[in-house]
Amino acid sequence: MDIVTHALIGATSAAGLLAWQPELACGVVLGNVAPDLDAFSRLGGKQAFIRFHQTYTHSVAAVALVGLASAGLWIASQTEWSLLLVGIAIGMVMHVGLDLTNSYGVRWAWPFQRSRMALDWIFFIDLPMLLWTLIGLSLVTWAWGNGLWLAWISGGYVAGLLLMITVRGMIAMRARRLAVSLSKAANDRQATRISVIPTTWLPWRFLVCRDWGDACLTSTLNVWQGEEQDVQRIPLHDDAMPAAIEELPPWQAMRELSTFYHAVEKEVENGQTTFVCRDLRIRNYATRFGTLTCQVDAAGQIVRSEWEV
């Protein structure tokens, strides 16, 4: 999720605590945005952002550290600061849990495991979740000053949010089973890997990407109708790509994020070749996140490169 959505979720969830435990409520809001402070790694460049975002601050170790600090402070002094830290830990759990449902995932098991975990249940910008949060925030604004009403509204919002995530998870698992069964029904022996990514607007529509020999097949899966639409065959140019591109940090960073990151366009002009590489899984609202464009000369040396992050 983007940091704005996290902040709205935290504020709506914590509103019901303000009248009784304001320190705890403030902590929940802060915890819902704190993990995304790693976005400041962007100051170190695009590669640093890809390397650090949704990694260490999104791990169980980071949450545990805050939890231990709050426990130690409570034992030592039993002040409101310990409740603030407890709230931050709760908010961080909410943040990491939501990001686990997204497509690029988080390094939740760091330092024991470096790989990311992604459930692919909800895209990081999701209209139904945003609408539900805006409704909850509107009701919180309407009931502001009435502690009892705020508690009921926040409780109902959190319950509805958990129900939405559960249902979306069930739909996503159904979508993956359906995509696999459709491949088997088509006797698709070339589809050794399948990716199923949720779309931004409709919970029952998913973006499918599967291997197809020296190409990839992309399509849109409608779980409600049980069929695929907009099937396209995307030729891959990885084998023609010079080693200089594969050695680029942007290429290596994106390949670590997605095994469906490929060179999908190749154009030769005036003795120079242009390769365009992108993640075939992420096609929501025609995003170009991660797209790498490289122009190489006849000797395979890079003349120009551009990375969109």
Score class of each variant (00 low, 15 high):
His262Gly: 00
Phe289Lys: 04
Thr274Glu: 15
Arg283Ile: 08
Glu246Gln: 04
Val268Arg: 10
Gln252His: 02
Trp251Ile: 10
Phe289Ile: 10
Thr274Met: 14
Phe289Thr: 11
Phe260Asp: 13
Glu265Asp: 15
Ala240Ser: 11
Arg281Ser: 12
Phe289Ala: 10
Val264Gly: 02
Asn284Arg: 02
Asn270Trp: 00
Glu267His: 09
Cys277Leu: 15
Thr274Ile: 14
Arg255Trp: 01
Arg278Asn: 12
Arg283Thr: 13
Pro250Leu: 01
Arg233Glu: 14
Glu267Pro: 00
Arg233His: 03
Leu257Met: 15
Glu265Tyr: 05
Asp239Tyr: 01
Ser258His: 08
Phe260Thr: 07
Pro249Leu: 01
Thr273Trp: 10
Ala244Pro: 01
Pro235Ala: 02
Ile282Trp: 00
Pro242Gly: 10
Thr287His: 05
Pro242His: 04
Arg281Cys: 10
Pro242Thr: 08
Val276Ser: 05
Gly271Gln: 07
Glu269Pro: 00
Pro249Glu: 10
Glu267Asn: 08
Pro235His: 06
Val264Tyr: 11
Ala240Arg: 10
Val264Thr: 15
Glu267Gln: 12
Leu248Tyr: 03
Arg278Gly: 03
Ala263Gln: 05
Leu280His: 03
Glu246Met: 10
Phe289Gln: 07
Lys266Glu: 14
Pro235Arg: 02
Pro250Gln: 01
Met254Arg: 05
Glu265Ala: 14
Arg288His: 12
Lys266Cys: 13
Ile234Leu: 01
Ile245Lys: 02
Tyr261Arg: 07
Leu280Val: 06
Arg283Asp: 10
Glu269Leu: 11
Leu257Thr: 08
Arg255Thr: 13
Ala263Pro: 08
Val276Asp: 00
Glu256Phe: 04
Asp279Glu: 09
Leu236Val: 12
Phe275Trp: 03
Ser258Leu: 03
Pro250Gly: 02
Ile282Val: 14
Val276Met: 01
Ala243Gln: 14
Glu246Gly: 14
Glu265Val: 11
Gly271Asp: 09
Gly271Phe: 06
Asn284Ser: 13
Pro249Met: 01
Lys266His: 08
Cys277Lys: 00
Leu236Asn: 05
Asn270Ser: 09
Asp239His: 06
Trp251Gln: 13
Glu267Gly: 00
Glu269Cys: 05
Pro242Arg: 07
Leu280Pro: 10
Leu257Tyr: 10
Glu247Gln: 15
Glu247Arg: 15
Ala263His: 06
Pro242Trp: 08
Thr287Val: 14
Asp239Leu: 08
Ala243His: 03
Thr274Ser: 09
Pro242Phe: 11
Ala286Ser: 13
Asn284Gln: 12
Ala286Leu: 12
Pro249Lys: 05
Glu267Ala: 04
Glu256His: 04
Asp238Cys: 00
Gly271Lys: 05
Val276Asn: 00
Arg233Gln: 14
Cys277Pro: 08
Tyr285Leu: 15
Asp239Arg: 08
Leu236Ala: 04
Glu246Lys: 06
Gly271Val: 05
Arg283Gly: 13
Pro250Ile: 04
Tyr261Asp: 11
Trp251Tyr: 14
Ala263Asp: 09
Ser258Val: 08
Ile234Val: 15
Thr274Leu: 13
Gln272Leu: 07
Thr273Glu: 09
Asn284His: 04
Tyr261Ala: 06
Glu247Pro: 00
Leu236Ser: 05
Tyr261Ser: 08
Pro242Asp: 09
Arg288Lys: 12
Ala244His: 00
Val264Cys: 08
Ala244Trp: 02
Asn270Ala: 14
Pro235Gly: 06
Arg255Asp: 02
